[in-house]
Design a protein around this nucleic acid. Sequence first.
DNA 1: ACGATCTGCTTGACACTGTCAAGTTACGCT
DNA 2: AGCGTAACTTGACAGTGTCAAGCAGATCGT
Lengths: 201, 201
Amino acid sequence: MTASPPSRRKRDGSLRIALVDAGVALLRERGPDKLSLRECAAKAGVSHAAPGYHFKNITGLSTAIAARGFSLFCQAMEQRLATSAPDAAERLSAICQGYLDFATGHPDLFLFIFSGQKFREDDEEFAHYASRSYAILRETCALLIPEGTDPEEIEILVWSLVHGYAHLAMTRKKENPGLGRGWPDFSTLMGHLHKALQASG
Amino acid sequence: MTASPPSRRKRDGSLRIALVDAGVALLRERGPDKLSLRECAAKAGVSHAAPGYHFKNITGLSTAIAARGFSLFCQAMEQRLATSAPDAAERLSAICQGYLDFATGHPDLFLFIFSGQKFREDDEEFAHYASRSYAILRETCALLIPEGTDPEEIEILVWSLVHGYAHLAMTRKKENPGLGRGWPDFSTLMGHLHKALQASG
DNA sequence: ACGATCTGCTTGACACTGTCAAGTTACGCT
DNA sequence: AGCGTAACTTGACAGTGTCAAGCAGATCGT
């Protein structure tokens, strides 16, 4: 796996990246609770203690993987935003779609970053992408805040709805490769949400 | 811990219960990802392999703990329902309050049962309480379904909103003993939800 | 060109985990 | 009293995270 030339030493941090790659792959193959330093090492073709050098403990590796997760999460939302119509309602639909793209495309990673397990919040990369993901939501909501309403109220409303939908879909029965069998499409929920916002504004 | 008379053998399944108690306590003390068969055994005062007899593997113990979790979950909702005004909107508010009572009262257990880890779905107790918790939601929503709307659409709408709110509150930063600092109260979200339902009905 | 140094890894050890096989003990029954 | 079996205990093994020590290749000063 990741078979680079013989086994030269890297001063460029490429093993660090390879280990995160291995971790992401491991999550996908074995599930969100089966991460293991030693198996990441094996997958990357290095000795069992090599990860300990780059991430001093398993929390460090988990944090790096979560950072990768949040980065992909942001990417998914931005991708949908990039091809969205410019009006506020469409942009809101777009980030929600991106949200669900990420959840269905990387269910393991999605559950992992929202597992409630503690990461190293002081990690720069992690903090960057985690806060950026919320910033995207916030900016998109900004245009839809009814006069005289606390913006956070709407942000949390939207976020709760899409997050709850995605998270329930991922945790309920594993026989849903996409979203739950027979579940209403998110667009119908989005319709109700818009009605609520119109009624408020 | 749970110091019963000397160390007599029990034919009544009381060790099984003691082990689940120990597991629940362990989750609270050490976090949702730190469950251990051996430590549950120690906490219950039995040998390291005793849990293996009652739950054949750690998935078995996890399932029993999750069953306990869902049972408390149902209990929290029913308790709020019992003292609620009889009209549909109030009953809906009541189960949402119960939902949040459970999440804030047992954050570890809440994250555990919704961690996405797989349980033994064929376990009778687990299946009972898990499906019952959804049934409570369903029954409460039933009175609020607008004419000509798929009931599941409203159920998922409500469930997503309250679940997303609770789950985000639990996973975002651990310095929130209750719900996030400065977060809008759920009742405001509930207000928007009602507006949406009125606009639909 | 060459030795010193430092960085990136390896090796080895330890305490801990889940799981299984085999042994032991106490309870209920006849 | 004695037996059978349910409810454990004991012991072992492989796998885990973490740490200390060793070691070798890259880089630097000269």
